[in-house]
Design a protein around this nucleic acid. Structure first.
Length: 475
RNA sequence: GGUCUCAUCGUCUAACGGUUAGGACACCAGGUUUUCAUCCUGGCAAUCGGAGUUCGAUUCUCCGUGAGAUCACCA
């Protein structure tokens, strides 16, 4: 049997990093086993439905590189892949339960059920709907919720690929709603029917579903459906707390990270590393490597806190892995305004220089703007520099003049420049920490820059001489 | 409150009963004859507590403690 996994989001908003990992692991497993990764949209909650959310979800997954084999936009033989379009299937499966006497109309109003719930709470005991099962339920005409009648109240035991052997007592079992009074199924019913219809072999989801497992298991049995393989994933915790990461606590959307210059492969690597590792000391994985090495039995059972610093570090690692051409493509929206009219060759030259220093793509402007526009002299940078602050005004001027003269006479390839710079050290008798820092600042007025000779070479003689003159003049 | 789950450096994690408890991020200190956010070297830092099983427990069992999840006509 080929492995078929799925990711089944509801279109209620953006995808945050926790959601993204719930998509990643089933994706990895399906790809590794040459199976199919299915995307299903669970849009049965009309109240929480958000108009553009589906497109946002699809676009986010596409950006991440988690492409689906079946689902919206691509179709497939087991569709439709939107739950609202699958009503006939839910009807058919519900009818099967009704025929077996395992589903009944819920005659109570929501207020009445709520009252039962209140009462149970008052009496300090768990609320169970099945304690209130109507003796002679009316015929279900669709205007009332349809409830599942749990056939056997017992303890359930099952295996979880991540969590191991699990079990839960009869308290976890209750008559739950299959179809709401609006005619749409609940998640509890729909996902089981859909997974069966779509021949999903592995149910991989967050561990918030574990407490409901006995209900699901009982329904599989009632429907005479084999149990799929289950894997419940630990939560990703918010950076500051111990709570499950959620939108309520301001979990950032995946697209925000994209806009901040995070690479999709870094995000995926990071997400995978929270809760999974291959047992070696490897930290940086490409998506292909993740596909090859992933396994459910090496997934952690405890939650992992979201540490952005680690994400940043991984992002830098992945930026360094990119070819220059690839990086050039990705960095397109991040260039400083002043680079807009620069030609491709010039931009690539600059990019090659800073590739090793980028932590995010969004760092590009700070690192490169002085290549494309005249930086404004900021003598604060010199007076606040520990070493440069010791220099007399006059010395600064002399050093800059000397540098200007030497560079004006120099060839401008990196090697010649290094020689010229070294020569300058001797003639001025200065320490490199002082001389080179000064030149660097006078030419870039930037907090950081690549190696001085490389920077000068890319800048070109005219620019370097002009900026040194400007620096001297502004003193 | 009921049910369920989890527990190793600050953080992410490794160690299928035997290791000086390993790696990475972050941090700190050096180095790479400029800065630095790259790179290299070094340092700091952990098995929640208590019983038990065992020659030997991070690892197995039990009890605590702590944390989380869940108890919807939401998923």
């Amino acid at each position: 049997m080929t492995t078929r996994t799925r990711f089944a989001p509801s279109p209620t908003g953006y995808i945050h990093v926790g959601n993204a990992r719930s998509a990643l692991f089933p994706y990895l497993l399906a790809k590794q086993q040459k199976g199919q990764f299915i995307l299903r949209i669970e849009d049965t909650d009309q109240a929480r439905f958000v108009e553009d959310a589906t497109d946002l979800i699809l676009d986010t997954l596409t950006w991440l590189g988690l492409t689906w084999d079946e689902g919206p936009r691509v179709g497939g033989s087991y569709g439709p892949y939107f739950q609202t379009e699958r009503k006939s299937s839910y009807q058919a499966w519900a009818q099967k339960l009704i025929d077996k006497g395992l589903a009944y109309a819920d005659p109570y109003t929501p207020e009445e059920v709520e009252a039962f719930r209140e009462q149970a709470k008052q009496e300090k005991r768990a609320f169970l709907y099945r304690d209130h099962r109507p003796e002679n339920p009316p015929v279900w005409d669709g205007s009332m919720p349809l409830r599942f009648k749990v056939p056997e109240i017992k303890r359930y035991e099952w295996h979880d690929e991540v969590m191991g052997d699990l079990s839960a007592g009869p308290e976890a079992l209750d008559d739950f709603i299959l179809i709401k009074s609006d005619g749409l199924p609940t998640y509890n019913f729909a996902h089981i029917v859909d997974d069966a219809d779509m021949q999903v072999t592995h149910v991989i989801r967050g561990l918030e579903y574990i407490p409901s497992m006995p209900k699901y298991l009982s329904l599989y049995d009632a429907l005479e459906l084999p149990w799929p393989i289950f894997a419940h994933l630990p939560h990703i915790l918010a950076a500051d707390g111990k709570k499950k990461l959620g939108k309520r606590d301001g979990a950032k959307s995946v697209t925000e990270y994209r806009d901040e210059g995070i690479l999709p492969e870094a995000m995926l690597n990071f997400l995978a590393s929270m809760g999974w590792n291959d047992g070696t000391e490897q930290e940086v994985f490409t998506l292909q490597e993740l596909v090859e090495k992933f396994s459910l039995d090496r997934v952690q059972r405890s939650g992992a806190r979201f540490d952005e610093q680690r994400l940043l570090w991984l992002n830098g690692q992945h930026i360094r892995l990119l070819s220059l051409d690839d990086l050039y493509q990705r960095v397109t929206p991040f260039w400083p305004e002043s680079a807009r009219n620069a030609d491709e060759a010039a931009k690539k030259q600059v990019l090659a220089l800073v590739q090793d220093r980028l932590k995010t793509l969004a760092d590009l402007p700070v690192l490169t703007s002085y290549f494309f526009e005249e930086p404004a002299p900021d003598w604060q940078m010199i007076t606040s520099n520990k070493q440069l602050a010791k220099l007399e005004n006059q010395e600064v001027a002399q050093l800059l003049e000397a540098a200007k003269a030497a560079l004006e006479a120099s060839a401008f390839d990196p090697e010649s420049l290094q020689e010229t710079l070294n020569g300058l050290l001797e003639t001025t008798g200065q320490k490199p920490g002082i001389l080179f820092s000064l030149i660097r600042l006078a030419v870039s007025w930037a907090p950081f820059s690549p190696a001085l000779n490389d920077t000068l070479a890319v800048l070109g003689k005219d620019t370097v001489v002009r900026r040194l003159s400007a620096a001297i003049a502004s003193r």
